[in-house]
Design a protein around this nucleic acid. Structure first.
Lengths: 253, 253
DNA sequence: TCGTAAAATATGTCCGGACAAATTTTCCAC
DNA sequence: GTGGAAAATTTGTCCGGACATATTTTACGA
């Protein structure tokens, strides 16, 4: 039952002990010695096995926890959660405002605010139930030269429609107004990007011809338990607008 | 110079000491007591001030480090890196293959492999110098029904063009072949999404009419020191293809 | 055999100490 | 005044120990 040989200090000059212990444990997990779901040896067992202090073992296990390989429970033990380290590439942003990607100052004008009862089709798009009355905001965003760069339709979940009185005076993203006024936290945003020829109404708003190419971005803001909070449907003229993102590789450790 | 009063144990029953110390330090940073760029008191000073052990101070500072509020340097001290916690929303993926977003089995056919010398304009697009010969791969990806869903142009940096002999036999993403054969690590991917009417050649490959709407996705894979590794230019017909992403809110602590 | 309480086990918190390594400050010579 | 070496300082690693808390196992009684 000796699953890991005692640590040899020689081959890893300058590498902290805890990292060496961690490396050995990672290798053992990867090799299947400790399958996903099983328990690692206890801290005390690892102390004996590697001839190191409990502090060192705990630091090593902290590394493994950080990598998402194990989960630790007081009184229970250290369970293998995954056989390989956590996600490799990621994109982060400090605020969802960075989603909007307007390179310059823009002006947003709300053209219409009303309530719309969702039929089957719209309810499907919005992720709600048919028959409910969503708050709807229609507007256009313009660049400094006054050219329209985005036509938006924002739908606010019926439970949060009380923000209606404030939307015209609000200058930030709608989801933030909902968060502030209704005590909601947007847990996730799902964004869908596609190209499509413009319908007549959109074309008209953007000063384009019907059938011209548009980039359509649908954003669904959801709160706890995947409850829809807001859905915005945005159309950008193809010319002069593109959506960029950067994914960086996460370094291990 | 007493910037934080000694810790009072009473008001935070059940909260570990180190978390209480961390909370106080976070509050002080937020309040501007320690501006971004300045040094926090030393570990020993914090031990005296909070009347706790060095272990407890270090655990507290580990919390702050984890939040991205401070950076620590042996011999130097603990510097305030930010006044507010780290990025709030993120998207992660285990592999860049998840970027490709083909919902079903697809078949990729390479139609042409050649070398193209980049002129000023192409060099700008590719992020390299004019005059160099990039390896170019042109192909079409089809769904199970044989309908073309993506026309791709892949440009491989001249330094890695040696993969040419293997590309036709390779069934995964090109960047992975480059990584495996040339000892390169893709550090970041920059992706740019836009809508545009199809040119004649693209339309032909996708079985569409010139001028039909397409979603264009340009991906730039870069390695160390921002060196370009691969650039792929993909055109999808508007109909039936959309690009989705999910951003999740990161919980603090 | 089942349920409950007690005991044992395993991780979490916290203390004190020592030595190592990296950085900053001080001191001295030119 | 400047440069280099030595000393001091600050964080990083590692040890040992103790107590607390959460979970699991064992023992006992009905």
């Amino acid at each position: 039952m000796d699953k890991s040989p005692p640590l040899s200090m020689a081959p890893a000059e300058g590498v902290p002990l805890y990292q060496q212990v961690a490396n050995e444990l990672i290798a053992a997990i990867r090799a299947g010695t400790y399958p996903v779901g099983s328990l690692l040896p206890t801290e005390n067992e690892l102390c004996d096995r590697f001839a190191v202090s409990r502090y060192t073992v705990r630091e090593a296990l902290r590394q493994l926890t950080k990598l998402g390989l194990v989960s630790r429970r007081q009184g229970s033990g250290t369970q293998v959660a995954a056989a390989a380290p956590a996600p490799a590439y990621s994109q982060s942003m400090r605020s969802l405002s960075e989603l909007f990607q307007y390179a310059q100052e823009t002006v947003y004008t709300i053209d219409r605010v009303d309530r719309v009862t969702a039929d089957e089709e719209l309810a499907f798009v919005l992720g709600g139930r048919p028959g409910r009355a969503w708050l709807r905001l229609e507007g256009v965003r313009r660049g400094r030269d006054g050219r329209p760069i985005c036509r938006t339709l924002v739908y606010v979940h019926p439970d949060y429609a009380a923000i209606e009185a404030e939307v015209r005076g609000h200058h930030g993203p709608i989801y933030q107004l909902i968060e502030a006024r209704c005590g909601v936290t947007v847990r996730e945003v799902r964004q869908e990007i596609a190209a499509e020829p413009m319908g007549r109404e959109v074309a008209e708003r953007l000063g384009q011809k019907p059938g011209a190419c548009a980039l359509r971005i649908v954003r669904r803001y959801v709160g706890d338990n995947d409850k829809p909070v807001e859905v915005s449907i945005n159309h950008h003229p193809a010319e002069g607008f593109s959506y960029t993102m950067r994914l960086k590789r996460e370094e291990l450790g």
